[in-house]
Computed example of a mutant assay.
Amino acid sequence: MSSSFIVFPQIDPVIFSVGPLSVRWYGLMYLIAFLMANLIANRAADKPNSGWSRDQVSDLMFFGFLGVVLGGRIGYVLFYQFGLFLDDPLYLFRIWEGGMSFHGGVLGVMTAMIYFAWRTQKNYLQLGDFVVMLLPLGLGAGRIGNFINAELWGRTTDVPWAVLFPGAGPLPRHPSQLYEFVLEGLVLFVLLLWYRSKQPPAGNVAGLFLAGYGSFRFIVEFYREPDAHLGVLSLGMSMGQWLCLPMIISGVGLISWGYLRRSRGALI
């Protein structure tokens, strides 16, 4: 293995503290993600004939936040720590110990949006297209937070940009957090913007998000260190990859269904 690698800088996860209150880099990334999503949503709502008001955007942010937190925590416990949950059901509520699942967060947001669509009488597919545009940049901010925290690092490697993370052993690793920042954050956002400009059928932007995120995450999992307590599962895939498969299938199915609806409508 090459001796050339990057030594991770010693970054204090706490930016500053005031008494018992500490402001952490990871929390700041979540705040930045929320502010970016709110800005994008309000700009879209302000456009003529958008069908949205800023009050509705505010409600959307609230229900979306609940969906992310509750779904992310429940998903993490069920997908990654189910055995621990069976031994100690109260573990589900000890959020301060860490542990959130993106896939669980997606399910939580989808559930919250069902209620929001019913409450506001909005079309669920169109709502999904609106919501997914708010996600990629927030995801990217979260991955930067993972990198600053020196967590969720990659597998060992000898590529020139390998990083020696504190607490990850003596060997350099892929900075997989940055791979996810680029693919799940920047690239996915640009891809969604481009596709939305093509005026696809309702629900197809959401479908592309599911298929795009699932595909990018599936690829990055080959470079990301599997969870220590789970390791590599059947067929040589990680838990993250197994959870991405339903996303990819659902996304492709949603896109196909959208164009099928449009073609049938054109024939009527």
Rank of each mutant, 00 (worst) to 15 (best):
V14S: 09
P89F: 01
A202V: 07
I74G: 03
L243F: 08
L152W: 09
E184K: 03
Q177R: 05
F79A: 09
I148Y: 11
L90W: 14
L193F: 15
V106A: 11
Y213N: 04
Q121N: 13
L191R: 10
S3T: 14
F85Q: 03
G75E: 01
G251V: 06
G169F: 10
M237F: 15
A37T: 03
L31W: 11
R54W: 10
R196V: 09
L31T: 14
Y76N: 13
F34A: 13
L192E: 01
R224L: 03
G105Y: 01
A202N: 14
F147L: 04
V68A: 00
L186P: 13
L135N: 09
G231E: 04
T120M: 12
V182A: 13
L92N: 01
I32G: 10
Q121R: 15
Y26Q: 02
L31S: 11
M113V: 10
G251P: 08
A44Y: 13
G108P: 09
F181D: 00
Y223R: 05
V69D: 04
G236A: 05
V68K: 05
G154P: 01
A117L: 03
L243N: 01
K198T: 14
A33E: 02
S53D: 07
V252L: 15
H103R: 06
L245R: 06
L139H: 15
F222V: 02
G253Q: 00
G145H: 01
L152Y: 06
L28G: 06
M239Y: 13
D55H: 12
L135T: 13
